[in-house]
Design a protein around this nucleic acid. Sequence first.
DNA 1: ATAGATTTGTTCGTATGTATA
DNA 2: GTATACATACGAACAAATCTA
Lengths: 80, 80
Amino acid sequence: MDADAEIDHDAATPVYQQLAEILRARIERGDWAPGRRILSEAQLVQTYGLARETTRKALRILIDAEILVTVPGRGTFVAE
Amino acid sequence: MDADAEIDHDAATPVYQQLAEILRARIERGDWAPGRRILSEAQLVQTYGLARETTRKALRILIDAEILVTVPGRGTFVAE
DNA sequence: ATAGATTTGTTCGTATGTATA
DNA sequence: GTATACATACGAACAAATCTA
């Protein structure tokens, strides 16, 4: 999945997996350095035109992979 | 929506839309004149028994309609 | 002058209901 | 029937701006 790819609602791959791969690619590309805060859930919802739950499902994948860390009230950060 | 109406959690209309209409009616009735500060979010939460997010969603509708204006640290005001 | 309270702004956490593929 | 996706709603915490004692 390319970092600049857009969400394809008709694709066989679930939307939340697509978003997870897009974000993973953006992090690998260096859009956000380790320790930096990425887009908020609300911003991701707006940017990619998805529901919040779907966005969170994508984030969950990267959190489980220890690529991201979330901090309540602060945001979501690239793991260091 | 009447200015004295109460929130109906079982109605088809979302709660935040109900509150927006109640507040719109109260403003039209003259509960607060243009330029005056309305209830704070915390007071609205208490008065109508809603979550803050729901209250803010109602306010957002009236802000987008240019009926209300918010000022950080000061409050929410009727547009002039 | 500053410490605390108030108020809006932002953010993640959780749960439920509905619709669709 | 299950997984996916969206919308709504409540909860909790942190932050910044403003006002007051």
